[in-house]
Nucleic acid binder design. Structure first.
Lengths: 342, 342
DNA sequence: CTTTTTCTGATGGACGTCAATCAAAATGGT
DNA sequence: ACCATTTTGATTGACGTCCATCAGAAAAAG
């Protein structure tokens, strides 16, 4: 096959030494702009890609990655933690997972406070579950401006200067749930309810928006009940969903946007209402069991393992200046029914 | 963090030299079984994992990978080819994609003939789209027995001694299609049809089995029409599906198990029968378009990119003796509707 | 035209593994 | 105890990049 191009080839092509090529490739100081440009051109011309194996092998000190997660108590959050641990093993040769900090969910100030400790010399990259908040945004920008790449995970801070967002489009996820709801319903005169975790969390708002938009457009005859709040809490959920089932004996479907579904499942089990189309988010041991025995009809899922690995890869690519394989990094909105459970 | 363990540590622990450790790790001759055992124990005890970066960097000659694909003319097959090319780039540093050979689809003898050329010194690993056939099986066994790992892709030869199968469970895929069909149907007295590529291809048989099983069990009132054959050919498909639509004005749904859906879509477009629930396999430009404008209601998909990368990774893991991250390699049965298209 | 500062080249030692060599030691058979 | 045969140790040079050092060259400043 074609010979592999090394930094030596680039040096020869650019008429400089390998030391200079290295300085340019790693953005180290002491190279005149004109010379750097020549090197970059040679890279371009020869199609040089630096060998990440050799690179990470020779690199003196490992990348220090900081991770910030909300302290919520959901299965999905637990799965995230596990996957981060697994990824830390997988990337152990090139990265040091310095710190996985838990910040108080729903309290941006706490995240902001945590992010304050991020400094250039103790941190090479940040992964965080963000919120769409002005203060969080400026914290991210501060870190980004120091030249530390930031990747948002699961939940974005869209207008911040993060390098990438790894997660699903929540409006599309809501629409997907709506589509399934509309088509799974057996009687389109029976009303449909939806329960958020919170009306203030961006992700939930987006999912709700997508769901309601789609229902109004494609299944306009189906009555949509006013949205409820379950605060991602099983006890609260059981209460809210229990009351809902009682108040609406003709309920046709329920879309649960957030967490705490243990409570919702319990409420269904208590009343034995198997005819209600129940759609939730995130596949967990619990929702898997509920889907098996017919309580849940479909789960909209995002793969936390994929997301975490993707976040690490993107961070690495950013730090290495390596091209990104987008096909591999796109997080899918997965649909699970009883029969395609992994 | 914890210090990284090198082959030197293992050598010290086992009381041998690094040369011997290397011989053991790479299965080279010239080590007494007792000594090899000591080394393996040291590896176990210290939890040594060989650094694949350094390993593949230092390896003198790249792995020679052979790939065998059917010569079918479907979009999915084209996607596979593309992804193989992409993967060849991605793994170029450690693998040489020696040859992508096309064998005549539906003709096992031709595949067997091609596989004959696989020899120890010109090949380190094989990826192939297999068929469940006695001769193919023994060909695979012959290669396996030479110590060359074989990975089957998309379609398996289950009883052969292949190292891994990368693909979906087609029975489950059929069940999934059945579930969606049953729930999407608006009137369960209208009959449902299914069209295979061929009654003889194992994958199609399995999907059909899963579909029919589930329909009989969970939607027993829905009449199932006798299965049809479309030979993965657009022209034939258009004819078959056209005739079907004409013969059954009350048709409720169609499950297309194989390829050639261009023809089926055309037939639907010709008759303007938007009320028929149409479920197909594999997301392509065509099916994406058809799902957008409402002809197709759901697509059961397997990600060819994921599959190909997975095949390469598994082959490498096999050759490196490296542990496999199963969570990452599991191929999902994906469901796409209008709203969660990637 | 010096002096200072900023760039650049040359070099060499990592990183962890592979693979080849040659010599030394252990083993087995007689 | 001898020789032939395995098995092992010690050493060495890749692989491609990083990074530090030092000396020398070019550019900027005086």
């Amino acid at each position: 096959m074609t010979r592999i191009i090394t930094s030596e080839d680039v040096a020869r092509q650019a008429g400089v030494s390998t030391a200079t090529v290295d300085r340019v490739m790693n953005g180290r100081a002491g190279v005149r702009p004109a010379t750097a440009e020549r090197v970059l051109q040679a890279v371009e011309m020869l199609g040089y890609v630096r060998d990440t194996r050799a690179s990470s092998l020779s690199r003196r000190n490992k990348r220090k990655i900081w991770v910030f997660l909300p302290d919520s108590n959901t299965s999905f959050r637990a799965a995230l933690s596990e996957e981060i641990e697994a990824a830390a093993m997988e990337f152990a040769r090139s990265c040091d997972l310095v710190d996985v900090q838990a910040y108080m969910a729903f309290e941006p100030e706490d995240l902001v406070r945590s992010l304050k400790s991020v400094e250039r010399d103790s941190c090479d990259g940040v992964i965080l579950v963000a919120t769409d908040d002005d203060d969080v945004r400026s914290s991210i920008n501060r870190i980004s401006d120091m030249g530390i790449p930031v990747v948002t995970l699961v939940s974005d801070s869209p207008r911040a200067g993060r390098a990438h967002y790894v997660g699903i489009d929540n409006i599309a996820a809501g629409r997907t749930a709506g589509r399934l709801m509309g088509r799974f319903l057996i009687d389109d005169r029976r009303p449909v309810a939806l329960v958020c975790g919170s009306f203030l969390v961006r992700d939930h708002v987006e999912r709700r928006l997508g769901f309601e938009q789609l229902m109004h457009k494609d299944f306009p005859q189906v009555p949509i009940l006013p949205a409820l709040e379950g605060f991602d809490d099983p006890a609260k959920m059981e209460q809210v969903v229990g009351a809902l089932l009682q108040a609406h004996p003709d309920l046709g479907g329920l879309y649960s946007i957030g967490a705490g579904n243990r409570g919702a499942i319990q409420a269904f089990a208590n009343t034995g209402r198997g005819d209600v189309v129940f759609i939730t988010h995130e596949l967990t041991d619990l929702s898997r069991e509920a889907i098996r025995n017919g309580i849940i009809d479909a789960v909209i899922h995002q793969d936390p393992g994929h997301e975490v690995r993707s976040a690490f890869r993107l961070l690495q690519a950013e730090l290495d200046g390596t091209p990104i394989r987008w096909e591999q990094e796109r997080i899918r909105i997965e649909i699970f029914v009883k029969d395609n459970l992994p």
